[in-house]
Amino acid sequence: MEASNVPALRQQGAVSAKAHGPKSGEYLTFRLGSEEYGIDILKVQEIRSYEQPTRIANAPDFIKGVVNLRGVIVPIVDLRLKLNCPSAEYNSFTVVIVLNVKNRVVGAVVDSVSDVLELNRDAIKPAPELSAASVDTSFITGIGSVGERMLILMDIEGLMSSAEMGLMDAAVAA
């Protein structure tokens, strides 16, 4: 699969790129296991086929390593492992979503990319509040409904720049 540009994705049925915030706007949808997620399209730089990254010693399991993307060294995070999905199989549908997070390029491995959807305020419900201390839902901004589809809307910038990820300097993440 060739690298695809985000402008081409926007033409698949999305509108203006001026929508801001987690409530309404355009979302790139992707699958992790049987769940479908959505992230702000404005954070997406490109989508690439998965290639084995160069491993980094002592990195957490969810950081698969780094790749050289046109001269830029990009850390690759497997979101399936980060979000405790039951399995993380690499196949022809596995892709890397290249993100621009706080002026840093980061790759996110997902099972597959679905499409770009425009969601208005009426299609988005607040994220559920779970009282269990072991469940971190801070990166979930809402639940989107499109027909029969349910999308978990993520704050990908918040997730990728969290201290636990270790991908951003403290000064950059603040």
Rank of each mutant, 00 (worst) to 15 (best):
N84Q: 14
P75S: 13
P75R: 11
P75G: 09
A108G: 14
T94V: 10
R104F: 00
A88W: 01
S87Y: 11
Y90D: 06
V116K: 07
V116L: 11
S114R: 06
F93R: 15
K102W: 03
V105Q: 11
L99T: 13
V95D: 03
V116S: 06
N100S: 13
I97N: 09
V109H: 08
V95Q: 13
V74N: 09
S92R: 10
N100T: 14
A88N: 09
D115R: 08
L99E: 07
N84T: 11
F93H: 13
G107T: 10
V77H: 08
L99F: 13
V101K: 04
V109K: 07
D78N: 15
S112P: 00
S114C: 07
Y90A: 02
S112I: 05
N103L: 10
N91L: 00
V113W: 02
L117H: 09
L99G: 03
D111Q: 08
N84A: 15
V101D: 03
V109S: 04
N103W: 01
D78G: 11
V110G: 04
V109G: 03
V109E: 02
V116F: 08
V74H: 07
C85L: 14
V110E: 09
L117T: 05
V110M: 09
A88R: 06
S92Y: 05
V113T: 12
L81C: 05
R104D: 08
T94W: 02
S87D: 10
C85R: 14
S92Q: 12
V98Y: 04
V98K: 08
A88E: 06
N103Y: 04
P75V: 11
N91S: 12
R80Y: 09
D115N: 07
D78L: 08
R104M: 12
V96F: 07
